[in-house]
Amino acid sequence: MRPEGEAPDFWTPLRTATRSRIGLGRAGDALPTAQVLALRSAHAVARDAVHLPWGADAIERGLRDLGLEVLRVASQAPDRATYLRRPDLGRRPADLSAVPEAGGAGPDVGIVLADGLSAKAHDDHAVPMVAALLDRFRRAELRVAPVVLAEQARVGIGDHIGERLGVRTLIVLVGERPGLSVADSLGAYLTHEPRAGRRDSERNCVSNIHPPDGLGYDRAADVLLGLVRGARELGASGVALKDRSPAGGEIGP
């Protein structure tokens, strides 16, 4: 049974204007079988993106192939169920001993991959997104810290990691909460001088990175490089930087 095997009808041209599930038909008062199963499948894919572990080993290999040093950190959330219930634990590292402490000024830029709410986002996009960033940072002669893979982790964990690495600017790539139509969207959060206690208003966000439908790697990396430069110049990230940046701090759908 296929969800979209129907002949063109009144709704077909309207579907070009919205992804909404319009004109689904009826089985009595209920949805037709194919539509019920289509919705259930989309929900299943989204749930799997939330609950299945990410392919951290494959991502680490991909990053090493780019010539990057890779470190691993876990948050204080011991498992997925706790992680979902306790966002505060996902923002704090369990142990940072794997991360070298910078004596004096550290590298210019740090990159943390936090699994967030979508493993699939990282499995699909983490390595090529980091590659696009690395390409721009190298050309801009910015020194890049070892990349840190943080598990059961939210954006805030980057503040602790970035502070220890001593980086000037930190980019956290995080798996965004899956929707029914997109389960593999990556978000990038930029924080100037990361340290514990930074507020969300002190970050800039580039969301919806999931080519081919969402934002592409090159465009996202260009915007992020612009934000890195802007933050270094301004000495701050967040609302103040967003107001100055022609690219905007946020690129939505």
């Binding site: 008062d29 929707g179 029914l180």
Partner: peptide, 22 residues
Amino acid sequence: TVPGADDVMLGYQSLSFHDVLA
């Protein structure tokens, strides 16, 4: 109520129009 229970803007599931008919 939203079309097919899927709010494509807010990214969550509410009720479908059909759910209310039923």
